[in-house]
Design a protein around this nucleic acid. Structure first.
Lengths: 245, 245
DNA sequence: CGAGCAACTCGAACATTGGTCGAGTCGCCG
DNA sequence: CGGCGACTCGACCAATGTTCGAGTTGCTCG
């Protein structure tokens, strides 16, 4: 439940560099003098999330971020090697907002469903975190890993064969991400929706099924998400109760 | 099977403008003089797809695109109002590469599975088209709609209740998009994979399940995709054969 | 107390981007 | 020939991610 933002790494000396393997998590954070440094990774991430929430992904700018922190833009590069680092950090912070239970119940399917519903809610509070341009690195942040550990162990408890674990994990992950990305990017104004549906109506002969089923106007995102999740869990044969025997 | 790229709209007069509802498909293409104009929407899309394929999404630049067409950068804005237009057009072209059968068989589930496998292959040929930053407009291109029409009618034939059609459509769409986006963005080098797994191994006490199941090193994307698709279709109870009676 | 050094900050600058402005050119139709 | 609509484009703008190198700050050791 509590966001883990820091890291316990030792200092490195010298400016943060882009070299080596790359992912933020594989590199140390800055050491910190004895007193709190005016700028820290924590503060940067916090400001980044706030900025992203308030203004959206493409208004996240190193300069704007720095300004918000009362710092020069260049200063950020001491604590972070790249704008991508900031985004990685921010994404992990969203996972940090997802409540991950400390222990499993004896109804693994419910555990999974609850985890994913809660995660979805967190993502919807930070819509930029879905629909990000594809990232070249695997998620490795502490909050993500905590989340993932719970999900995967619940899947195994639900009876999923081990050799399907990755497939099931990806399917669920993609469902949540895709559904929330669609929901938060496709907020059409009434006119836009009307125009889109009119366009389809004008082509009803070519696309009768599509035109007849409110592809553009439907906005029952909760229902869409829940139904898809049921499909997946049903398809996986996720056990509803404790294992017999 | 054949890509529809053009449009049959009439001219509009004056420069293409950003105003109104916005989606490229709701606006006319340029008229064309009697002889083929040196630059056309078709040629632009073709060049854009080639550029995207060869250099990736963030090397798509209006200037680079224009250069490839032997034109000035500004000229593009006569045929297209925005870079986003180009991307919308390019995405629809990918759908145009997906073979969409002219008619259904009596095994709707197979129809669906084949369509999605074929679409996935097309997307993998154009990896940029998954993992695009979230687009603010619904897909409305002719190739997409053709694809969608087949998918949705197949779903109904498979026995899906009408009020689940959108949910099922989104779930399948998101699965393909998510799976291919993950696959094509997470092409880790051997060292990167090793470093990632080492990182996890070092935290085996905190994340035992994750560390034990090759989250970063697994690369059976075909299997992952196929399994997820089976989950979804099973969960939907998609009919394998013709409707009885 | 003071020298030295690591930790940190930052302004100026660079190349690159998406997009606009307004002045052109081209070729058909009268 | 004249005009007009279709099209092209060079110059320009504000903005971006990132680098360079020169500062400043404050702990640590003599």
């Amino acid at each position: 439940m509590k966001a883990i933002t820091g890291s316990e790494h030792a200092s490195e000396g010298g400016r943060a560099h882009r070299g080596g393997v790359g992912s933020v998590w594989l590199r140390p954070a800055r050491a910190g003098r004895s007193g709190e440094a005016p700028l820290t990774r924590e503060r940067i991430v916090g400001a980044a999330v706030a900025l992203l929430d308030e203004e959206g992904f493409d208004r996240l700018t190193m300069r704007r971020l720095a300004e918000r922190l009362g710092a020069g833009a260049t200063t950020l590069y001491w604590h972070v090697t790249t704008k991508d680092d900031v985004v990685d950090l921010a994404v992990d912070a969203v996972f940090g907002e997802t409540p991950v239970p400390g222990r499993h119940t004896d109804r693994p399917r419910d555990d999974i469903a609850r985890l994913l519903h809660d995660w979805r809610r967190a993502v919807l509070r930070h819509p930029w975190s879905a629909g990000l341009p594809a990232r070249r690195r695997p998620l490795l942040g502490p909050n993500f890993l905590t989340w993932m550990e719970f999900l995967q162990s619940a899947l195994l408890r639900a009876g999923l064969p081990e050799d399907r674990l990755n497939a099931a994990t990806w399917a669920l992950y993609n469902h949540v991400m895709g559904a929330t990305a669609a929901q938060s990017s496709l907020r059409l104004s009434p006119e836009e929706a009307r125009a889109g549906q009119a366009y389809l109506d004008g082509r009803r002969d070519r696309y009768p099924t599509v035109a007849a089923h409110s592809y553009v106007t439907d906005d029952d995102w909760d229902g869409t998400f829940a139904a898809g999740l049921e499909y997946l869990l049903d398809g996986m044969g996720a056990r509803r109760g404790p294992a017999a025997g």
